[in-house]
Design a protein around this nucleic acid. Structure first.
Lengths: 352, 352
DNA sequence: CTGAAAGCGCTTACAG
DNA sequence: CTGAAAGCGCTTACAG
């Protein structure tokens, strides 16, 4: 391991000034073509790599994005992260990732460390606890600080920043409608992610659909540490359930598993629609009909929105920034029909 | 968004020198207790956050770790990343993550950007292409540069650095042995990650076990874009397959799925053991018996090993470093028996 | 106990 | 076309 080679060292060896070397490497027209190429060759020869910390300090930007997600194991977040990483990489940005583990404290801590100038902007999906308690001071601090923030999936409109989401309410309503049209009469809503914004929206959409059919909505919340069988099976029996809208992939799979083990047939006895389009649902037997949340696309949009914001900040004086309204991207979603539901029945279109 | 508050600004407002303010905030005993607390209070009042870039530049360390993984979607890597993130966070390190997408070029590019001093050390699992072609120059460059590198899971011993892995050969042999003892006679080896180090090791272990039974090994490689049914079903029929050792979770699930759809019963007709302990295998019907690769633990060990190395580097003069031999941690693994295999038959222990 | 100065490795107006 | 100087925001020997 040799001593680190710096501009200064290069300059010494070349008998040039640090400025000239720096300008040459940055291809400044100020410097003669000859010197430029000489310096560049010499730099390569010496394995020179500019110090990113010094560059960032000088330029006051880091070309890195801070990403905070509540959890990495559900495939929605894994895929979103993939979308974020690949889009950021293409744009020349690095990503620093933090997992809040659904805890507001951890979320706030990660956010605080991002105040130190290591990231140009932040992409975040809120922790369950944050959405439950609505403690948002740590987010507002970031905004006050002037660090661009983009929320995705688990968002809030109580703070002023860009966001990416899907229309959870609308698609949940549609999914419930479709199950109803295919013959399901006793559809329940099942969730393990209760009190998140997405859960609430999906629940609303579900309730709306039920109301249209003058059916009583039934919402079942199961904790991750609770026994699925114990909570689910009594409900299936009592309510003669023939349709389940599950707010996340895991609970969709677990309910199919539980039902099948008990002797129910899917979709003959019970139809199931889940959220997120992950491997688990795709490869289960029967494969899961599901709302495609476009996880990767959400990640991609989050990065693009953030970068756009960063560029605007750069162009316009800080005062102008107040005029830049937050943008809220709502992605179109779609239901992927697979084996856990009956074939979809077309909507009655007599009116048209 | 106010102007950023710096030491200089603080010093101006307090009528103190920058040095005194800096020392106070760092609780230097040089400064009187009174001044210290006055400065600290004032700093909090002004929402002062030290600039991390400047600190890193000065200290020549960043408290961040670069992580390069080939792919983020397979649950092994998702879980490993989780282990890395949580362990790093506990130790006060941030992680920058890059996904090589199994490409040597991308791996090398990410590695090159890590040369710029943004990370203190690197954790990496090799891209498939890198393992196939054995191009390792980009890794050696990192070593020459003196940046500590820890390899995990997909490792190589051709470069001199720390590594974390499991004994893939031994556990594959054991898994095959167990299927044999439970009555399987025609066990095949199935993989979609061929030519990785782990695939080769598992194949070796499998072959060893087959040899002990004087049985012919049969290795089936399927590409991700190939139709699973077309490749697998003929083999199942021709070879009267009654056992499958699958080198990854996805191919284990896909083979169960394919076999079940064709009318085979699992484990009655065919036993299946997979690798990685992920949700998909855990919740499939039947649930998958699998080798626990301790993904999270590997991630954790990788971070701990790296941090140990960083501390050694700090303590010892560079010359001494040559004497610090690489350490290779090989984690103990275990087979988790679930529904895709017959209950394990105890090993014949007459010798004891 | 406090402060002036140098330096981490860069970039960039400004002089010559 | 080249270079000296200032500065990004910190820390830390060294003086006083």
């Amino acid at each position: 391991m040799e001593q680190k080679v710096t501009l200064k060292k290069l300059a010494g060896l070349l008998n040039l000034s640090v400025s000239t070397v720096s300008k040459s490497l940055n291809d400044s027209p100020e410097i003669s073509a000859q010197t430029r190429s000489r310096v560049k060759q010499f730099a390569i020869l010496n394995n020179y790599v500019p110090n990113g910390m010094a560059q960032s300090l000088k330029a006051n930007k880091t070309k890195t994005i801070g990403v905070i997600i509540p959890n990495i194991l559900p495939s929605f977040f894994t895929k979103a992260l993939y979308g974020i990483e690949s889009t950021a990489a293409k744009a020349g940005y690095k990503i620093i990732i933090c997992i809040s583990n659904e805890s507001t404290r951890k979320e706030a801590e990660s956010l605080r460390t991002f105040l130190n100038g290591r990231v140009d902007g932040i992409i975040l999906s809120l922790a369950k606890e944050t959405q439950q308690t609505q403690q948002l001071e740590h987010l507002n601090r970031i905004i006050d600080y002037g660090i661009p923030l983009v929320l995705f999936d688990r968002i809030t409109h109580k703070i002023s920043c860009d966001s990416i989401s899907i229309d959870d309410k609308k698609i949940a309503e549609k999914a419930t409608d479709e199950m109803h049209r295919s013959g399901c009469r006793n559809i329940i809503y099942l969730s393990t992610i209760f009190d998140t914004s997405v859960d609430l929206q999906r629940q609303n959409g579900y309730a709306l659909s039920r109301a249209k059919c003058r059916a009583q909505p039934y919402v079942l919340h199961i904790n991750e540490n609770e026994a699925f069988e114990e909570k689910l099976l009594p409900v299936l029996a009592e309510k003669s359930v023939d349709g389940i809208l599950a707010a996340d992939e895991l609970s969709a799979i677990l309910s199919m598993r539980t039902a099948i083990k008990k002797g129910y047939k899917i979709p003959e006895d019970i139809s199931v629609i889940g959220f997120t389009n992950g491997f688990m649902g795709e490869h289960f037997l029967p494969s899961l009909s599901t709302v495609n949340q476009h996880a990767e696309e959400q990640g991609k949009m989050a990065v693009e929105t953030l970068i756009t914001r960063l560029q605007k900040d750069q162009d316009s004086p800080t005062a102008l920034e107040e005029y830049l309204e937050p943008v809220h991207h709502v992605l179109e979603t779609v239901i992927i029909h697979r084996e856990s539901t009956h074939p979809p029945v077309p909507k009655f279109s007599g009116k048209v």
